[in-house]
Design a protein around this nucleic acid. Structure first.
Length: 151
DNA sequence: GCCAACGTTGGC
DNA sequence: GCCAACGTTGGC
């Protein structure tokens, strides 16, 4: 079992849309490090869903329901001979929602927590798919399920 | 809306 | 292979 965090801009694809659809094809990732993380995801892995840009916070928990396969949104390009398609290089996974956090865990809270200081979210703010340690994962989940005002 | 950080591209 | 220019992401 592995633990991950994925980012999405709520204006583009937010948690509520994810809930309505009940399943998401996590496409459009165009960064090698993030892609390698997608490839490493396994069925049943736990994935925190993070809203970036607007009120940045972890809003929910998802799980991997299909492992990586070529990204259908990738534009197919041809090799120099003009005939052979280049192998696709980007991948997607499919996710399903598990639960919404009662209290979204803000980036400010994460930054204020010394145990979370090593997260890629803090150290490499532009990475959109990142691994978490089990401790980081469980701590954020616990923070998100505490009653309001009890930090 | 601004800006810093980072990744990618292209000229040399 | 280096580096400047540029585009994008994301925090504030």
């Amino acid at each position: 079992m592995n633990y991950w965090l994925v980012k999405s801009e709520p204006e583009t694809y937010g948690w509520h849309q994810f809930i309505e659809q009940g399943r998401a094809v996590w496409d459009g990732v165009r960064n090698y490090q993030a892609r390698n993380n997608l490839k490493a995801m396994q069925l049943g892995d736990q994935v925190l869903f993070y809203h970036s840009v607007t009120n940045p916070c972890v809003v929910g928990l998802a799980t991997v329901v299909r492992e990586s396969y070529p990204d259908p949104t990738e534009v197919v390009t041809l090799s120099k001979d003009g005939v052979t398609p280049k192998p696709t290089q980007w991948v997607v996974v499919e996710l399903e929602p598990v639960l919404a956090l009662e209290n979204p865990v803000s980036l400010a809270q994460i930054k204020a927590e010394p145990l979370l200081a090593n997260m890629a979210l803090v150290r490499h703010s532009r990475l959109s798919v990142m691994p978490l340690t089990v401790d980081e994962f469980e701590l954020i989940l616990a923070m998100g399920q505490k009653p309001v005002g009890n930090e």
